[in-house]
Amino acid sequence: MEKLIELKNLVKHYPILGGILRHQVNAVQALDGINLDILKGECLGLVGESGCGKTTTGKAIVKLHEATSGEINFHLKKKDGSTEVKDIVPMSNRMLKKSGIRGKLQMVFQDPTTSMNPRMLIKNIIAEPINEVENLKSREMESRVKKLLNTVGLGEQHLLRYPHEFSGGQRQRLAVARAIATNPDFIVLDEPTSALDVSVQAQILNLLKDLQQQLGMTYLFVTHHLLVVKYISTRIAVMYLGKIVETAKTADLFKTPFHPYTFALLSAIPNANIDKKSSRIILEGDVPSPLNPPKGCRFHPRCPFAIEQCRTVEPQLEDVGNGQAAACHRKEDVPKLVKDKFNFYFKN
């Protein structure tokens, strides 16, 4: 499979200023060396607990946050069919726009109520990104906006309304329409359904899935809800405290996880299946502060299988075959250890 975006050792630190001269005293290490390939046409699910850096990754890729260091290589398809690899970290906004990358990267935000200007008409909201990349006459623009509204399941009658006149699900549809307005290659979906009800969530998930097939887009689906990710994505990356701890194809991750954190996450999902009650791996404590993360493996204070090596040496993301990779010193032993200690079996 062709790569679309490569993240190479991506680091994002949010500085904390202090002292009389407002110098940097510390930093929130939101992302600490992320290596991730996003393949063309896939939907990569990024899961983890709150504060682990999922959203920061998404925002760094669309350049809403400036990465501290590292590379984001974007494979841009040119008009003559050849691809060109560009590192977008050092690029300015103007260069991004000029090289045509700006319109290819889009984002859908978590809360549709706050991500839209309440004083703009729907037609202007959706036309705004198109204006950025091309100049259209107002009539062409209107027909384009109408077409976009139709693709997301809304109609012409919604053109001259304000965001507050819509329900949460419809607003999220509008946000999706705005994101696909510039024919992007890549969309970051930042928890697009967590502010919605279950019945509406199903509608939006189906819409996103259909759009991906129709338009051949690549998604980065950021969420904390593993079952949603299981439904929509083809590959999953699990994050913990600014690091990726495991990547695998969706089916493999649910069947044969390797990292103990993945086990715990999977076992913690409340299961709506009444017959199969399985045991749980309950992690002690909370996610440590990213201000001064633990030394060695970042998961070791909560890990039930931590050994001496975990406290000192940081494990790297290593391939374990079948396109699956895990960052754990004891990855070969973990499935057996989990089975012995927790008598854990999978719910599906």
Partner: peptide, 17 residues
């Protein structure tokens, strides 16, 4: 309409709001 472990294919949807 809830995604589950065993869900395959499309999610069922409740029409309207």
């Amino acid at each position: 309409s809830v995604p589950r472990f065993s869900t395959e294919g499309r999610l069922a949807v409740i029409d309207g709001f």
